[in-house]
């Protein structure tokens, strides 16, 4: 039913696509849209809570943060918390630069290596494939609390301590979550397409580049979104591997506002947290548009 709506809305905007019998149901569709809103809007209010809370805390004077019951609109509104939080204590501009470098590198690394591996698992026939796939899954099953020390020792032996290498090199060697995700999408593409290409003499790599990837835009968009967020917010690895303040990243910097006995300045912390969140929202906003374009692409080719 949802698909009807999609098409219909597109129809009204884009007359080149007109299919007559859609029009007749227009009133029904309006009612359907209203039902969707009725279902989603109450939830949206609840889901909007953290942002409103963060914003409200971000502009509060120190002594109004712990008022109870909470005051949603503080008096006065301290917009200066954004500037002060970012500039007064820690080199957040530097953290931003570092985080950007690492994140961009890791998105590419994750994409390239995970697409390749997922392609292998989804579309190439080989003996022992399932065993390797179980290994991919297996690496996700062990909580990192027990692998973190040996891994740290390993990177220390490589003399990678206090550098970005432990953060920037492993993403180029495949990320199980993305491999599994892309594999699921790749497996859902009809085999006839690459079978035909193969008979025409196309290599595996040409098939991946010309057939599989163009048909997987929504999946790739979601990998980019997740890779961006995962690396942007990555906390544990930089926390453990990076020691020098000038090599540190945003997520760890943000955490440094916290004090042992409640000396945390929540106003600054929330203000900076909101600033750090903005790029994530932008990436999501742009990324989800690709989903929409995805319809057209797969619709034409499918």
């Amino acid at each position: 039913m949802r698909q009807t709506l999609t098409s219909d809305v597109r129809v009204t905007k884009d007359s080149g696509y007109t299919i007559p019998w859609h029009q007749r149901r227009k009133t029904r569709q309006t009612i359907q849209a209203l039902i969707v809103y009725a279902l989603l809007l109450p939830g949206a209010i609840i889901f909007l809570f953290p942002l409103v809370w963060m914003l409200s805390t971000a502009v509060k004077p120190e002594n109004q943060i712990f008022l109870f019951p909470p005051k949603w609109i503080p008096e006065p509104i301290l917009w200066s918390n954004f500037w002060d939080g970012w500039n007064k204590f820690l080199p957040f501009n530097l953290f931003l630069r570092n985080t950007l470098i690492i994140t961009v590198n890791n998105i590419f690394g994750n994409l390239v290596s995970s697409c390749l591996a997922a392609y292998g698992f989804a579309r190439l026939r080989a003996r022992g494939k399932n065993i390797f796939f179980m290994l991919v899954l297996g690496t996700m099953l062990l909580p990192n609390e027990v692998t973190i020390i040996p891994q740290y020792v390993l990177f220390s032996l490589l003399k990678w301590n206090d550098s970005w290498l432990p953060l920037m090199v492993p993403p180029w060697f495949g990320w199980p979550f993305f491999i599994f995700l892309l594999r699921q999408f790749f497996m859902n593409i009809p085999h006839e397409l690459d079978e035909a290409a193969r008979l025409d003499g196309a290599s595996s790599w040409r098939i991946l580049w010309n057939i599989i990837l163009p048909l997987s835009k929504p999946a790739i968009a979601s990998v980019v979104i997740f890779a961006f967020i995962g690396n942007w917010n990555n906390f544990l690895a930089p926390l453990i591997y990076i020691r020098s303040l000038d090599r540190q990243v945003l997520a760890v910097g943000l955490n440094m506002f916290r004090g042992q006995y409640g000396q945390t300045n929540f106003g600054y912390m929330m203000a900076v947290a909101l600033l750090v969140l903005m790029p994530v929202l932008i990436v999501f906003f742009v990324g989800q548009r690709v989903f929409i374009q995805g319809i057209a692409t797969s619709g034409l080719k499918g």
């Binding site: 040996p150 060697f173 495949g174 595996s204």
Partner: peptide, 21 residues
């Protein structure tokens, strides 16, 4: 081709994740 495709992952597994696991 399969081994080439999963090669990067396999190397990473041997170098970085398999040992600690």
């Amino acid at each position: 081709d399969f081994y080439l495709a999963i090669g990067l992952w396999l190397i990473g597994f041997i170098l970085f994740t398999g040992g600690p696991i």
